[in-house]
Structures are given as structure tokens and as C-alpha cells.
Amino acid sequence: MAVRWDIFCTVVDNYGDIGVTWRLARQLVAEHRCAVRLWVDDLRAFERLCPEIDVTLSEQWQQGVQVRHWPGEWVPTEAADVVIAAFACQLPSAYMDAMAERQTTPLWMNLDYLSAEDWVIGCHGLPSVKYKHVQKYFFFPGFQAGTGGLLREAGLLERRRQFQQDAGAQRIFLQELGVERAPDTCLISLFAYENAGVASWFDAMASDTQAFHVLVPEGRVLGDVERWLGIDGLKVGALHRRGALTVQVLPFVRQDQYDQLLWCCDFNAVRGEDSFVRAQWAGRPLLWHIYQQEEDVHLEKLEAFLRLYTQGLSQAAQKAISGLWRAWNAGQDMAEHWKATREQQQELAEHAQAWCLEQASRADLAAALVKFYGNWI
């Protein structure tokens, strides 16, 4: 009998929460032969990642995963063998009772947010609260030994390598999105939250001698792009040039296509958690727009990652990329930091590849979860 897993996702940040849980659910089914129910409270957000989703259904199957809409009124359901509360979401009280009523107690885990902070290693795998006799455990994704690792499907890096070595495949993929890449042009993807730093960054690229082509999938940063261009209501397919910079609006694409977009680009600006991890697997230099939290707690997480990520870089490269990330996340002027980053582009490109391989040397998140369950029983 396949081990039954229930994964609960409350959509908070549009796509990050569901992006992570959808990837995880599919991988558990495809690679570990688990029976997975993915409970989602917002099917509209899910639909953007998986267009086949029927938002009117309370239950459906997608890519081997049973997708259940998590409505306000709970329907009595038997608890699974493994229960994951993604990002500390609160489970329905009736479901918690169902966990406690099982003859065999389920493994209950809180799959937490990704962080490079030192304390994560010490807390990973520790017991948390109890509900009746059901013990909850912390499970932390992470970048170091002693954490749960990162989501990475089998063969991902080999598929990426083949794609990045195939200029024809890249050209066909970009053309399907309406993108024509000119020779000797630096291709950049931009997926971010609202950010006042867009104007200074675009100004710097527009006035450069190097040609840049920035691809902007539909999202929250489009308002800042519109203000810089002086245009209202940018639509998919819009293409504008100013100086050395070409800006093009792309449709919001499904996850496998987004991976390929990242693989095509020379530099990727990403946001949140899911796209942040996928940009690291792309093996290209990146810029992370971290999700803003109260009292600037997110900046501590940003600094923790920078301390880890920049190890092994020269002082100049370390200063350049760290300065760029800090300015971006503070909405400050990007011009000098971008110039410094461009001057260190070769070292930063080599470092991105090395970092990717280092992270891939560890167990992936899905495998770590399955192993944790195996050890627990």
C-alpha cells in the first residue's frame, strides 16, 4: 500500500505557497510512489500554475495528485499517514480530531519557510506542539547539512545542462513566448514585488553600451515598469525600447516553462521562495527580492543567505552582489551596484554554477521528507 500524504496549503503570497506544495506533491507521487492529497484554499491562484485546474470542483486529479478544495465548511475526512501543514498553516479542527482518532498515529510536520539562518539547523526535526497525543515536528528546508534541503526533481540539472547547451531549443522556446533574442544581448528575467529600485536599474541599463533585453512575466512589478516607461496598462506582448534596453512583457507561465525561461537568461531577478530556488538551479547569477515581513525580519534572512552564498567570492565580487541585493530589497538606487556587478560578471557566473552543484550534492527536500518518515516509523 502506498503511504498516504496530506499536504495543506493556505495561499498567502499568490504563487509561492502553492508553487512549493504543488512541486512537492507531484514529486512525492512521481518519484516516491506516495498517494498525495493536496488541500488548497485558493484554486484561482493554483490555476495560474496549472491551467488544467477546474476551479469549480471540490475534488479532482492532476498529474497523479488528488487536489481537494479546502472550503470554509469541512467535510469529514480520514487523516493520512503523513500530514504536512505548509508554512505553519492551521489545519481544520475536525481534521486534527481525525488525526487523533486514527488507530496508528500519523506523522504531523510543519514544513516551514526556507531560511539560511544559523538557528534553523538546531531546530530542524525537533518536536513542536502536540494535539492530544499527536506530536507535531518542525521540518526546515535549507542550504546546509542538517536541514531538509531544497526541492529538486530527479534529473533536473541534467535537463538544464542539455537545454543550456542547445541554442536551437532555447531559440524555439523563446520564439513561442514571442521573444527574439538579438546577438550579443544580455537576457534578463524580472519577477518581483513592487520595487522603487526598478527606475534606477532600468536607467543604468538603458544608458549602457551593452544591449539588455528584460523579460517581465505578468506580476506585481509591472506597475513600476509602467511608470518608468510612462505607459499605463502594459499587456502581454508589449515591447518597448529605450537606449540599450528592451523591455518585454511575457505571460504568466506554468512551472516547467518558467524553469526554461530562467535557463535561457544570463541573469535572473526573482522573488519569494519558489522562484528563488529555481533560479539557483538555473546556475546563473541572480537577484532575490525577499518577501517583506513586519519589523524587517526578512532582512535578517537576506543577510543570512548572503553570508552563506558569497563565501568563496573575491572581496570585489562579494561587495558587488551583496550591495545589489541590499539596494534592491530597500528600493534604493541600483546604478552603482549594477555597474559593480557587471564588472564582476564572469566570477559571479562561475560562482552561480559552483553553488548550484554544491546544493545538488545534498538530498532534495522530497527525499528528505520521505526519509524522515521512514526513520520516524
Rank of each mutant, 00 (worst) to 15 (best):
L357N: 10
Q164K: 13
C89I: 10
T310E: 08
R68N: 04
E31C: 02
T104W: 11
R152D: 10
S322E: 14
E350M: 10
R278C: 10
D232H: 09
A367Q: 01
A45K: 00
D97W: 08
R68L: 11
S314F: 08
D208P: 07
A363T: 08
M205L: 15
D232R: 01
I53D: 00
P141S: 09
I377W: 13
F305Q: 03
R33Q: 10
C50I: 04
A199I: 14
S322G: 03
S189P: 05
Q175P: 13
V29I: 04
I188W: 15
L49S: 02
L187F: 06
E78Q: 10
Q280L: 09
W288D: 11
H213G: 14
F372D: 10
V129T: 04
G374I: 00
L313K: 03
E226P: 13
E180M: 00
Q280D: 01
A94M: 00
A340R: 03
V179Q: 14
R159E: 07
A211Y: 11
T310R: 05
E78G: 04
A349K: 10
S189W: 14
V236C: 02
G233W: 05
A88S: 13
G230W: 15
L261R: 12
V20R: 05
P141I: 13
A368Y: 00
D333R: 11
W108F: 00
G146C: 01
L369K: 04
H337E: 15
N110A: 14
G178L: 08
L306C: 03
A211F: 05
R326Y: 11
Y193C: 07
L313M: 05
V82H: 04
S115V: 07
L57F: 09
N329K: 13
W22F: 06
L157E: 03
I377T: 15
H240V: 11
T246P: 14
S115Y: 09
A85S: 06
L299N: 06
T21S: 12
Q315N: 03
Y258I: 07
L157P: 00
T77M: 07
P285C: 01
W376S: 12
L151S: 13
W22H: 08
F305A: 03
L174Y: 01
A154G: 10
V297R: 07
F143H: 02
P127Y: 02
A317C: 09
Y95M: 03
V247G: 07
R307Y: 06
E52K: 00
Q27E: 08
A368W: 03
R44N: 09
E153V: 00
T10E: 14
E294V: 06
V253Q: 11
W119I: 07
C50H: 09
D259C: 03
D266S: 12
E218Y: 01
G142R: 04
L245G: 07
Q63W: 05
V129C: 13
A206E: 15
W5I: 07
E226G: 11
C265D: 10
L157G: 05
L365F: 12
D17I: 03
W376E: 14
I321R: 05
R160W: 01
